[in-house]
Simulated scan of single mutants.
Amino acid sequence: MVEELVVAAAGAGSACAVYAVAAARVVKQYERGVVLRLGRLLPEVRKPGFTMVIPGVDRLRKVNMQIVTMPVPAQEGITRDNVTVRVDAVVYFKVVDPAEAVIQVEDYRFAVSQMAQTSLRSIIGKSDLDDLLSNREKLNQGLELMLDSPAIGWGVHIDRVEIKDVSLPETMKRSMSRQAEAERERRARVINADAELLASKKLAEAAETMSSQPSALQLRLLQTIVAVAAEKNSTLVLPFPVELLRFLERAGHEPQPAKPVRPEGESDETGTGSA
Rank of each mutant, 00 (worst) to 15 (best):
W154S: 05
I163H: 02
R136M: 09
G125H: 11
A151S: 15
E162N: 08
N135C: 08
K164L: 15
D130Q: 10
R121C: 12
K164Y: 07
G142V: 08
D148Q: 09
L145N: 10
S113D: 01
R136T: 12
L132S: 01
D107T: 02
S149D: 09
K126I: 03
W154C: 08
D128S: 11
I123G: 00
N135P: 02
N135D: 15
I123D: 03
A151F: 01
L147S: 04
S134K: 07
F110V: 10
I163Y: 01
I123V: 15
F110I: 09
S113A: 15
L139P: 00
E144Y: 03
I163T: 02
G125C: 05
I152T: 13
I123F: 03
S119V: 14
F110R: 13
D165A: 10
Q114R: 13
G142F: 09
L147I: 01
A151H: 01
D128Y: 14
T118A: 15
I123K: 00
S149L: 10
S122Y: 09
R160P: 09
Q117K: 07
A116P: 02
K126F: 06
A116I: 02
Y108I: 02
A151W: 00
K126V: 03
F110T: 10
T118C: 07
N135Q: 15
Q141A: 14
I124L: 07
D107R: 05
L139I: 13
V161Y: 09
Q117A: 12
L133F: 10
E144I: 08
L145P: 01
D159N: 12
V156Q: 01
E144M: 14
Q114M: 11
Q114V: 10
G153F: 14
K126Y: 07
L139N: 07
E162W: 06
I124W: 03
S149A: 13
S149E: 14
S119A: 15
E137F: 10
S134Y: 14
A116R: 06
R136A: 04
S119N: 11
D159R: 08
G125N: 07
G155K: 06
S113W: 00
D107V: 05
S113N: 06
S127I: 05
I124S: 00
L129E: 03
K164M: 11
R136Y: 09
D107Y: 08
S119R: 05
I152S: 08
L143P: 12
Y108D: 00
V156R: 02
L143Y: 00
R160S: 10
L139C: 10
H157W: 12
R136H: 05
I158R: 03
S122M: 08
M115C: 06
L147G: 04
L129G: 04
Y108C: 04
Q141Y: 08
M115D: 11
E144Q: 15
L139S: 02
S122K: 12
S122H: 12
R160E: 14
A116N: 04
S122Q: 13
R160A: 13
W154D: 06
S122F: 06
N140C: 14
T118Y: 10
L120P: 05
S127F: 06
P150T: 06
V112Q: 03
P150R: 04
L132A: 10
Q117P: 00
T118G: 05
I158M: 11
D165Q: 13
K164R: 15
Y108K: 00
